[in-house]
Design a binder for these strands. Structure first.
Length: 590
RNA sequence: GGUCCCGUAGCUCAGCAGGAUAGAGCAACAGAUUCCUAAUCUGUAGGUCACAGGUUCGAGUCCUGUCGGGAUCGCCA
């Protein structure tokens, strides 16, 4: 069964159609005047304007046509042509029961399901993840959860950055530090040691060192460029090093991602499509898409209609090296070939600052007939800023590592929990740690996701970890309180039963429940997780108001108590489901 | 300089193909606990939606311009 808003929209669309007007005017949404109505339809005004009719008359005719619907208690025309609809207590009760019973908690699968590859625009193997990677991880992961929940077929790929100049920096810097390693002996034919010559700390140190030197020293930069060209050309020692770098890096990445509840189907990277690159370049040449320019091979992606300048895409630079434009294109080829059935869409969850890059790649992919430009999508997001409004830095001015950020959140969550001192005295230490981690993850993920994806936001750990306000911890508290309530009622032998919607608080709560499916569909369509956050927060608030207004387990009347317990159960089901879609796990107690 | 995004309450932010009295959270103030987790709830106060024009019966929302902030603009990713 679909939600009330959708059912009412359908009824109104029918009514519009019967008046010879377009169905689209039938859109029904929650009323912004709760004292007047539960839902409203504003289509009478727009459609009347278009058809040259009187809006109030159109509205009145609509009202007459939908008044008989079973869900509807009353319909009124107000103001210039608003349709104010109240639904019956019975309809609300039926909805609440559906939320309680259905696996999807009142939501329904999307109509236009797709086979989607989700590319997380991977972290760079040469450097540890920093705060910026929090966003792609958390937004991308939430999108993959929402997509799957609504029926899309998703293949997620972390897609590591392991092929560009940064690898040249690493190789050459390591050679400076330890020139004696066999990897640097061009005569050596192998085999190479199984033990990596570097630790994750080494990687974290080597790259910034090299990068800093290269910026001021032309010759140093040239050595990195040479190294990466040799790596890409297949020099065995360098390849062996690359393998080590990736393995060391991935082990660390997995820890950070695991902490944040983020998982991928594929751990591919740029280097995985290395063997496709020569063929790709050849293909582009044959098709006449690529042309030579200053020793480089480029693709002109600009168009007549462009308002801004589109620099050509560089397929191969003048030194024979390839960058991420080329690997991204080769990856498209790889996915279309190796994934069956072929993906219908590829979605890239990457920093908004790379918008131009993706526009170039998408155009080139389309030109070469790899996949239509309309099937490629860049889901950009804003930066995580410090209190000064600039991208977040540590006090020393460096970037903050994601692992440090996670640790800070964990510590702060533990501190706040100790302060509140609400955990049962008998809770074992291990469970305490577990709860602290769940609170920390809830804080981080919710804080990030509740922002509109495209805007920047200011990172404020103290605010994010607070149990008050629109925060992850508040959401957990609301859910845990229901668990505790139901557990206690169960202990006393009180079972949830048939839901009746009697009070204003109960009406509001069920109306909140009813919005789940719509919020999910909107979040999916716009790729905007904050819409789901808004819903979950609103639901938690509505439950808290209900909780404050009525006794539930303590209600004396058995039927009413059973109903309220049933309603609580419905709320818990949807709340936990919604939080899980946000990648947030709810503890049993806290 | 070109292009794009942003400017809404003291602070952090929502605002859905233009629609009724612009909403949350925090902070402030006033209340609520012999009773289910008060890590909560209820209420009050707080806004010429940067500014100026335009389209419209109606504009925070669409168009134009101005001011302020940010991002980006060929061999880095």
């Amino acid at each position: 069964m679909t939600d009330l808003a959708a059912r009412l929209t359908y009824a109104c669309a029918d009514a519009f159609e019967s008046l010879g007007l377009e169905r689209k005017w039938g859109a029904v949404r929650r009323s912004d005047r709760p004292e007047l109505a539960d839902f409203q339809c504003n289509g009478a005004m727009g459609s009347a304007k278009q058809a040259g009719r009187n809006p109030r008359e159109v509205a009145a005719e609509l009202a007459e046509r939908i008044a008989g619907q079973e869900d509807i208690a009353s319909v009124e025309v107000a103001g210039p042509g608003f349709l104010n609809i109240r639904v019956s207590a019975q309809a609300l009760a039926v909805r609440a029961e559906a939320v309680r019973a259905e696996e999807m908690r009142g939501a329904a699968p999307a109509a236009d399901r797709e086979r989607i590859v989700l590319d997380f625009g991977g972290p760079n193997v040469a450097k540890p993840m920093h705060v910026g990677h929090l966003r792609s991880a958390v937004i991308g992961d939430t999108l993959q959860r929402i997509f799957r929940f609504l029926g899309d077929d998703v293949i997620s790929d972390v897609h590591l950055g392991d092929w560009g100049l940064q690898m040249g920096h690493l190789v050459s810097e390591l050679e400076d530090e330890q020139p004696g390693l066999v990897y640097f002996d061009a005569e050596y034919t192998g085999p190479y040691p199984d033990e990596p010559p570097v630790t994750i700390e080494d990687l974290g140190r080597l790259y910034p060192q090299a990068s800093a030197k290269a910026k001021s020293d032309e010759a140093r930069n040239a050595r990195s460029q040479k190294a990466v060209a040799e790596l890409q050309a297949g020099r065995p020692g360098y390849r062996a090093l690359l393998r080590h770098f990736i393995n060391v890096s991935v082990a660390a990445l997995k820890q950070d991602y695991a902490f944040l509840n983020v998982r991928f189907d594929l751990w591919k990277g740029e280097s995985d499509v290395d063997d496709l690159i020569p063929g790709l370049i050849e293909d582009f040449r044959k098709k006449g898409i690529a042309r030579e320019d200053d020793g480089a091979w480029v693709v002109d992606v600009s168009r007549e209609s462009d308002k801004k300048e589109f620099p050509p895409l560089i397929l191969m630079n003048s030194r024979g090296g390839t960058g991420y434009h080329t690997t991204d294109l080769a990856t498209v080829v790889d996915r279309m070939r190796s994934i069956t059935p072929a993906p219908e869409r590829m979605v890239y969850v990457v920093d908004a600052r790379q918008a131009l890059h993706f526009e170039q790649v998408f155009r080139a992919a389309d030109m070469a007939g790899l996949i239509g430009e309309d099937r490629l999508e860049h889901i950009g997001f804003g930066t995580v800023n410090g209190p000064d409004g600039k991208p977040f830095r540590t006090r020393e001015g460096g970037v903050l590592r994601l692992s440090d950020l996670n640790a800070m959140a964990l510590e702060e969550a533990g501190r706040k929990m100790a302060e509140a001192d609400k955990l049962p005295a008998d809770m074992p230490g291990r469970e305490r740690e577990q709860v602290a981690a769940q609170v920390a993850v809830a804080a981080l993920r919710f804080a990030d996701l509740q922002n509109t994806r495209t805007t920047n936001y200011v990172f404020d750990l103290d605010r994010f970890t607070s149990f008050e306000g629109k925060t992850g911890p508040y959401m957990l508290y609301a859910a845990v309180r229901i668990k505790s309530l139901l557990r206690r009622a169960g202990d006393e032998g009180h079972a949830p039963g048939d839901i009746r919607v009697e009070s204003e608080a109960e009406r509001e709560l069920v109306l909140a429940l009813d919005g789940f499916g719509g919020a999910l569909l909107a979040a999916r369509e716009k790729r905007m997780p904050h819409i789901l956050c808004e819903h979950v927060h609103g639901l938690a608030q509505a439950f808290s108001a209900f909780y404050g207004a009525h006794p539930i387990a303590a209600e004396k009347d058995p039927a009413r108590r059973a109903s309220r317990l049933g309603l609580s159960e419905a709320v818990l089901g949807q709340l936990e489901c919604g939080l899980n879609l946000l990648g947030i796990d709810v503890p049993e107690r806290m």
